[in-house]
């Protein structure tokens, strides 16, 4: 565990907590893409299947349980409790365009052709693009509430911090995992445009609004 990995995890944790609290306290999920949330639930479940096979640490297990739990709580709030506030019309990204290629890629490019390994690889590939329905929704409506921007910033920073963690581990521990690194770079790059807007607008107290 190094400082980059820890900050990455905390940033990730902060993101999922912000999201649940935002929906819970405002009693609304307006502006949030249910499709991205479904993809994240698939990511967590397929990646953390090792909860039942391998024990790494209490920290590791707790975080996995929290991510799966928060993800399902978010889906419950969006599709059941506060269903009426869910903005279907703007959440029109076709997730099969992300699911099909990531399934195929995981079957073709993986470290080992076993069920757990292919599912883990699939979850890494899917996570790298899972935010696209959300970013698509923001670009469609042309704006995002500041709390949604904070969520996106924390969620985007997490994989960026993991990239620093992987650079560190490559030198300090001789450890690297190419599949995760390449996907992590893709994932972080997808947020670049958003990061720019977040820093130039939201941090200056303005609403995140895309130029017309």
């Amino acid at each position: 565990m190094n400082i980059f990995r820890l900050s990455g995890d905390l940033s990730h944790l902060l993101a999922v907590i912000i999201l649940v609290l935002k929906i819970w306290t405002t009693r609304s999920c307006a502006g949030i893409s249910g499709k991205s949330q479904i993809l994240f639930a698939i990511v967590y479940v397929t990646r953390y299947l090792d909860l039942v096979t391998t024990f790494v640490s209490v920290y590791n297990t707790s975080m996995k349980v929290i991510f799966i739990g928060a993800s399902f709580a978010t889906i419950y709030l969006m599709y059941s409790k506060f269903k009426a506030t869910y903005d279907h019309n703007h959440d029109s990204f076709r997730i099969e365009f992300l699911l099909a290629p990531t399934v195929i890629l995981a079957l073709l490019i993986n470290q080992k052709f076993t069920v757990l390994e292919v599912l883990w690889t699939f979850s890494i590939y899917l996570e790298s693009v899972a935010i696209l329905p959300q970013l698509f929704m923001v670009s469609k409506t042309g704006e995002a509430e500041s709390i949604t921007s904070h969520y996106l910033f924390a969620l985007g920073s997490y994989r960026g911090l993991y990239l620093l963690n992987w650079i560190y581990r490559y030198y300090a521990e001789d450890h690297y995992e190419l599949i995760a690194i390449v996907s992590g770079i893709v994932q972080t790059v997808l947020y670049c445009d958003f990061f720019y807007l977040y820093i130039t607008k939201v941090l200056k107290g303005k609403k995140l609004q895309l130029p017309a």
């Binding site: 470290q111 450890h175 995992e177």
Partner: peptide, 10 residues
Amino acid sequence: KNTIIVKDEL
């Protein structure tokens, strides 16, 4: 380089 799969990350 060590490329053994150790899934100790989240």
